[in-house]
């Protein structure tokens, strides 16, 4: 990882003329004595994808919860279009045009697909005391949004709990795409998916980007991140390993940085010593680290 240059993402003026859609400056978040995130900065621009990478427990979910109004940062600030913003609740973030696909998906299993789709943002019809949830509209939009995603929903009245993991994830993604007016945040949207469906999600990210939305894409898979990302924020145990523009980092460098170089080699050797099956895995890993390193 010889000549990776870590860009310090301070308030320093950049080449771009306009302010970024969302700028994160030095945010810190602690839960009691556990510091989940320390001094993290990055930017998201309209029409660009910022990827957040890191292993389990690196603080990725904590990071996006700071952006989506679930938590408030202890220190640091968020700037939207250059103006400081504070989101007291997820509602406030949604109203600012930020929609999030949470890692746990934030769906209610016993409720139907269409009720989940519009939960918290229900379209209404009628006036005064007769104001009510416009169920026909909700069902119709749910069906068409899911179809746009290439998902054939048999019955939008079906409880979300009866869907497969991948289908549930698709509901959460379709919902965020529908309501995300400016910024779409996806927390490990590809982790529960097969190769093909992961491809569909990546296509979705690109579509949102091309529509001019900013996207924050969280993953621990550099092979998913690199093709779609414009910017890469690497986290490890709550600290930033760097915040790179795509031009500043290659896929092998990204992979190596993420895996923590030497640690991976060590692991590969350990696996090689073990039985047949994991031995093969170990050799594979070793090959990988060699080609990368």
């Amino acid at each position: 990882m010889a000549d990776i240059e870590v860009t310090e993402d301070k308030a320093a003026p950049r080449n771009d003329t306009d302010a970024p859609l969302l700028e994160i400056r030095g945010v810190t978040k602690a839960f009691g004595s556990v510091i989940s995130l320390a001094d993290i900065s990055t930017t998201v621009r309209a029409g660009q994808v910022t990827c957040v990478l890191g292993d389990n427990g690196a603080g990725k979910s904590t990071f996006i919860k700071l952006l989506s109004g679930v938590y408030r940062p202890d220190q640091g600030e968020l700037l939207m279009d250059g103006e400081p913003v504070r989101f007291g609740t997820p509602r406030e973030a949604l109203d600012a045009g930020i929609a999030t696909v949470f890692q746990d998906l934030a769906v209610v299993p016993l409720m139907s697909i269409w009720r989940n789709f519009f939960l918290g943002s229900e379209p209404t019809k009628g006036r005064g005391p007769l104001r009510r949830f416009d169920a026909e509209k909700a069902k119709q939009i749910t069906r068409s949004e899911m179809a746009d995603m290439g998902i054939d929903i048999r019955d939008v009245d079906q409880p979300v709990g009866t869907l497969s993991g991948g289908e549930r994830q698709s509901v959460a993604i379709a919902r965020a795409v529908h309501f995300g007016a400016r910024l779409l945040i996806l927390d490990e949207p590809t982790s529960a998916l097969g190769v093909k469906q992961a491809g569909v999600v990546l296509k979705y990210i690109v579509q949102a980007r091309d529509k001019g939305l900013g996207v924050i894409f969280i993953t621990h898979n550099p092979h998913h991140a690199y093709p779609v990302g414009d910017r890469f924020l690497l986290l490890k145990r709550g600290k930033s390993l760097g915040d790179f523009a795509k031009s500043e980092i290659s896929l092998p460098e990204l992979t190596r940085l993420m895996a923590g170089g030497a640690e991976l080699e060590q692991l590969a050797h350990e696996l090689e010593r073990e039985g047949d099956k994991s031995g093969a895995l170990g050799r594979e890993l070793l090959e990988d680290t060699k080609t990368l390193g």
Binding site: S68, V70, V107, V108, P109, M111, G120, F133, A135, R175
Partner: peptide, 23 residues
Amino acid sequence: KTRFGNWTFATGGDPNASKNVGV
């Protein structure tokens, strides 16, 4: 038939998920 009803089901079903989508 109302939003309040939808929020009632959601709050009882999964309060955390509901909060996160703005209920």
